[in-house]
Design a protein around this nucleic acid. Structure first.
Lengths: 243, 243
DNA sequence: ACCTGAACACCGTTCAAGT
DNA sequence: ACCTGAACACCGTTCAAGT
């Protein structure tokens, strides 16, 4: 609340607004990111933001772009195709994990910024190099990216805005709720109450999630892409076969 | 707008409110579901709803429960384990596909209603029968369910609130945007512009998405669950090994 | 070019009352 | 038990001005 009430701001700018929106979302959740809140944090009238952004959707597009700009894909891809794919997916995952409150933004805004297009292109290119057509790569790539978001949103545990003592309280409340269920109707849920109330090991959870994803893609490729450039170096797609 | 301004309502009730909330979300999107809008649709004061629900979160929990109640799992599971898993996943998918505007609700509210717990129990039980421990099944199951939601949210095409002519306009605008990109920076995205702007075949898209998911799980099971009840009949878990 | 001021049509919610 | 009325602290956004 006493974040920076009315700092002697030198100037308003797109990047300054997006910067504070990112911090605000990280600390207080995406719902806290409002035009009026950002304006007051910058010691300015709400309407001032409308000179820099057409509307709130444009602001969220800017925020999404800022998030996706942090994704660092390996510059020179080496190793087997599935290893390259895993590295790329982990690059995306680590950024989403660092900003879990923003995880849902790319779900609908992936194609609405240059950085989102960059991430998309890299993913589709990798899939295409693995033998999928650009069209198949498009559907598979969109799904792959969103499944990684789903991995983060489905991480067991309470809302990610909570911290410290309120978080521990939420975890034990959830545990108690699940343990109180009828064991004949919900035997497996009761048996897994601890694991559902809070993630046991985040690293294990995520490495297994990525593992399942890659296994699925590889298995599909092996069953589908019969002889279609199965082990291309993935520098650039051999021939994009445009339209 | 002229939906049912002030019908001579007999009585307000939880189910009547949830019913109209479901219709409203389906036709106008989740954002249209507000306390005040529902109240006016029922010809009643906003505060009237607070007798039936503690707050808006409770209303959305009720809406989620209503949605998940539509999920019909096969009563007597027959066939191979992965076929059972696929049937169960398709049962969940078909409900989400029927209500795409509500797809994101189960992401955070799965454990907050009896119907959500029912869906969770069924999923975990199946995974447990496949050889995963209840804890592993919990993490895998949460992920599986959310990945199916991700499948729906990542279906290529414009927002699902749009229909008819505005939808076609959004599709061709997206297509034009993607085709106008620099082909040296975004060759694969440009090549897949059509597939990214609108889903080619929804049935193909979804059957492949489920396919990738099942393949991933099966591959993980074959690599992991070494000899641990690999082909149990899946009626009920052999021994829940509680705690 | 960049920001203010007043206003409009919305939100969820509390609190005190009515029947 | 079930609903109303007035009020509070919020939203995003338009439109007309200011400098």
């Amino acid at each position: 609340m006493v974040r920076s009430p009315s700092p002697p701001q030198e100037r308003l700018s797109r990047t300054a607004i997006v910067d504070s929106a990112l911090r605000l979302a990280d600390t207080e959740g995406l719902d806290a990111v409002t035009i009026r809140r950002l304006a007051s944090d910058h010691g300015v009238t709400p309407m001032a933001l409308y000179w820099h952004f057409a509307d709130k959707a444009a602001l969220l597009d800017g925020l999404t772009e800022r998030l996706l700009a942090e994704v660092r894909f390996p510059a020179d891809p080496v190793g087997a195709w599935d290893e390259q794919l895993e590295l790329a997916q982990n690059a995306f995952l680590s950024v989403i994990r660092a900003h879990p409150n923003l995880a849902t933004l790319p779900l609908t805004r992936m194609l609405d910024s240059d950085e989102g297009l960059r991430v998309t292109e890299n993913t589709l290119r990798l899939l295409h190099a693995g033998g999928f057509s650009p069209e198949d790569a498009a559907e598979l790539g969109s799904y792959l990216l969103n499944a990684i978001v789903a991995l983060v949103t489905s991480e067991p545990g309470p809302e990610r805005v909570l911290d410290g003592e309120p978080r521990a309280a939420a975890v034990s409340a959830r545990r108690a709720q699940l343990l109180s269920l009828a064991t004949d109707a919900f035997p497996t849920v009761v048996a897994a109450a601890d694991a559902l109330a809070d993630c046991r090991s985040q690293d294990d959870y995520y490495s297994r999630g990525i593992d399942v994803l890659i296994r699925g893609i590889v298995s599909l490729r092996d069953a589908t892409a019969t002889g279609a450039a199965p082990e291309a170096p993935a520098g650039a797609p051999a021939s994009p076969t445009a339209e």
